[in-house]
Write a protein that binds this DNA or RNA. Structure first.
Lengths: 247, 247
DNA sequence: AAGCAATGGTTCCACGCCATACCTTATGGC
DNA sequence: GCCATAAGGTATGGCGTGGAACCATTGCTT
């Protein structure tokens, strides 16, 4: 066997040689727009960016984007209005909609490597918390963080998940690493899918709230070690919950 | 201004609404194959996966892949041999090659957000170290880690960077999060580009070596806090170096 | 009331990329 | 020595996608 180069080594190539695109442009764009909606980045009734803008951000042509929007429109998720100050608007989800969102969720969650997601999520969150605390927060940043925290406090139960997500996204965004923020957004969308598969326990919710308070305090105090430790526990809590229910 | 929804909020969409693909399939594939070579995952004289296999892994057609390989071949980076046990082989880089690799490097490094890269890198590395230490390492994993460490010790100066990379990739691979491993590979390729822009200091090298020893020891001891702390210092060292030279 | 600007809606053509099938070359086993 | 096998090399037709131009609608501004 010539040319062997003695390679019985573990497959180190797999992490690098990944599919260049997860699907076709259509599917990828659909996924990302759904992510925006699922993460609650655009509230009910809110407007998505204009088609030309959105297409450019997603790096696809307007033609393809419009096919995506067509699908979302057919499913009753968004509505398009023409004219100046028109645009594509997110519709409130029709409660228990007939569009079979349940099966959709099952389908998405089916292929997920739960351990991978939970571990990666913890690494990013803990890292973000540490970075934020370490490099300090000016007045504006601190205000954003406090506002996001406050929003979780007086949240109706139905909107808690969304505001919690926004708080964590805010923290990731303040980490000073756009790459980290982007990766966190992606993994958080998956985490939310997983969370949607298990019951929401009010007791855990209160616990989370205390951790959020302590976390923000530590970050604003510049206590990096403290922030990391609290975040680690916070993530461990969610992880234990998910591992328990999804076994 | 109707339909405003009071959104003077910071642009939370940017982290999610990213280009669906960084370029066309051709460019992306080229980049990834170059990454494999640059990271030293296939040693000089080593063989890349067969075209059909490689094309499938990259999620592109063989036609497109062959265009990529054609370019690499024209630049003298790889060589194709036909027949059974043939394949595409990585050629030793012709020292100071006429192919203008210098400009290539400058071009790649030009658009990099150094702070982003350094922060994200630290988060992933520290996270990986913590995960590895926390969930323990069986005999085989421990062996791989020790072997990678040993390889860095008796490395000729010219091959140190490569073996160092391999050690860190091994750690990331043992973290139990494939996503983390993939992200680390990507960010490390960029870090290596940055490192190629600054001089290699032997003193730093010895320092790194001591940290590597301590790191592996902590990981194998299951000392997660220790492993994280050492890794944090290790990354901080590289970061300070790069920040200093690239200012 | 008229005009302007910002948005969605529509059309057309060219090009990139894919899937597939087939050909050519080299090696090892029978 | 023959041939199966595994690899690179070549050719073709079709579809997804992109780019650009244009139309249609709405509401603010003058």
């Amino acid at each position: 066997m010539p040319g062997d180069a003695g390679d019985t080594a573990p497959d180190r190539l797999t992490p690098v040689l990944r599919p260049v695109r997860a699907g076709n442009g259509f599917e990828e764009a659909l996924e990302q727009i759904l992510q925006v909606v699922r993460l609650g980045l655009v509230p009910d009734g809110g407007r998505l960016p204009a088609e030309r803008d959105l297409a450019e951000r997603l790096g696809i042509s307007r033609v393809t984007l419009r096919e995506v929007l067509k699908v979302l429109q057919d499913q009753g998720l968004v509505e398009s209005r023409r004219g100046r100050y028109g645009g594509t608007f997110v519709l409130p989800r029709p409660r228990g909609g007939a569009a079979g969102g349940e099966d959709e969720l099952r389908r998405r969650v089916a292929g997920v490597d739960v351990e991978d997601v939970l571990r990666f999520r913890e690494v990013l969150e803990v890292g973000a918390a540490g970075l934020c605390a370490a490099h300090g927060t000016d007045g504006e940043r601190a205000g954003r963080l406090r506002a996001a925290l406050a929003a979780t406090r007086d949240a109706p139960l139905a909107d808690y998940r969304r505001r919690d997500t926004l708080l964590h996204l805010t923290l990731a965004g303040l980490s000073g690493s756009p790459t980290l923020a982007a990766q966190y957004a992606a993994v958080r969308a998956t985490v939310n899918d997983l969370l949607d598969c298990i019951p929401l326990l009010v007791r855990n919710l209160e616990h989370s709230q205390r951790q959020h308070d302590a976390l923000v305090e530590a970050v604003l105090d510049g206590d990096a070690d403290g922030a990391r430790e609290i975040m680690r526990e916070h993530c461990a809590g969610t992880a234990a919950l998910l591992r328990g229910f999804l076994t």
